[in-house]
Design a protein around this nucleic acid. Structure first.
Lengths: 194, 194
DNA sequence: CCTAATGGAAAGTAAATACTTACATTCAGG
DNA sequence: CCTGAATGTAAGTATTTACTTTCCATTAGG
């Protein structure tokens, strides 16, 4: 017999907390504000999570950080594959947008999440690197430092995402489709043989 | 007869504050800690800056955000120019590393600095965009969306810088010279006519 | 309708922290 | 050695804030 009300309340609280953390950071967010924003009594917050840090531990735990499957959809065709990869990458950043924003703002949360974020970055880099290496073996692209090239690819998308995250549309005005289309076009011409 | 002691003390305090802000953010940094780290009495902090916010206002004011001169050294040769630009860009990010780190962490400081940061981003983008347009007119590069291409270039370097800023060498292991060299090589081949 | 689980109201506690006040001390320059 | 600018010492204040305690209200399920 599972009690649903309890879970709903918990979700209301974590959701409210995430909103506030994005705006004000951990230290800048009070438990009273969290309760207000969640529409519950402050006491309820403590009943569910013990203390303030318990809320963010719960948030960090339930955050996915799951990699979308790229491997499965590889077609060994540069343009298709890289476009797909770029799309998945931005989508993935966006799925974790809250967590990224929060973790980069606060040292406490950063310390709890940063191992997992790092792992994710390196996993993603590895996938891309291996893709480049295989394409090289197949003779589709030039001899080049696949690892560095993977890092450059990631940097471009990470940079785009970070600009958008912090400055909205005021820094860059290319939407993500323009961005993907143009960057891939240039990138492909840059690494292709012909 | 200028009193030097006063200025030295001020500098000790702002320097200590910057260090602590990078670690803990504004709300997480106490005036007592600042005083300790600066090696002065807490009261001295208030005597010089009035209140806690006064310290960061002083920091924001004295921060340069000056663009290094790129225009002057243009040679209208893609590889040389872009390498130079990439180098200046990373150097410039690095010069403002403290301020960027602090501003992105805290909403109060962000609100005070973000107009200036935005202006800087857009100025830089404009320079690059105009460079591409001129190179296009001269017939050195392909027909392309110069603005988006400028944004992609910026994104790559911003992303690289942000990875390094937040994760040190644990995310990317290309040093900035590798990064510049390889990204420019790919980029040039991507946009050149031949 | 009863019961147990859940949430709310109100009041309070203890610690942290920005900031103040009053007075003493150091120290460089003339 | 004297003066005044700068800093230190010490004690304190007012507010905020995480967290507690006690008692009461609601509600869902059998």
């Amino acid at each position: 017999m599972i009690n649903m009300k309890k879970d709903e309340t918990k979700k209301k609280i974590t959701k409210a907390t995430i909103e506030l953390l994005k705006e004000k950071g951990y230290k800048g967010t009070t438990t009273r504000e969290i309760a207000e924003q969640a529409g519950v009594n402050e006491l309820t917050v403590f009943r569910h999570f013990g203390n303030k840090e318990g809320i963010i531990q719960a948030i960090v735990k339930t955050t996915s950080f799951s990699l979308e499957i790229f491997d499965k959809s590889i077609e060994w065709e540069l343009k298709k594959d890289l476009t797909n990869f770029g799309y998945l990458l931005l989508k993935d950043f966006d799925n974790n947008r809250d967590m990224i924003s929060i973790a980069l703002k606060d040292p406490l949360i950063f310390s709890q999440a940063h191992e997992e974020i790092l792992k994710k970055i390196n996993d993603t880099k590895e996938i891309l690197k291996e893709y480049f290496e295989e394409m090289q073996r197949k003779g589709y692209i030039k001899e080049l430092d696949c690892c560095t090239q993977a890092e450059i690819f990631l940097s471009t998308y990470w940079g785009y995402f970070m600009y958008k995250l912090n400055f909205g549309d005021k820094a860059l005005h290319a939407d993500y489709q323009d961005m993907i289309k143009n960057s891939i076009k240039t990138f492909i011409k840059g690494i292709s043989l012909h």
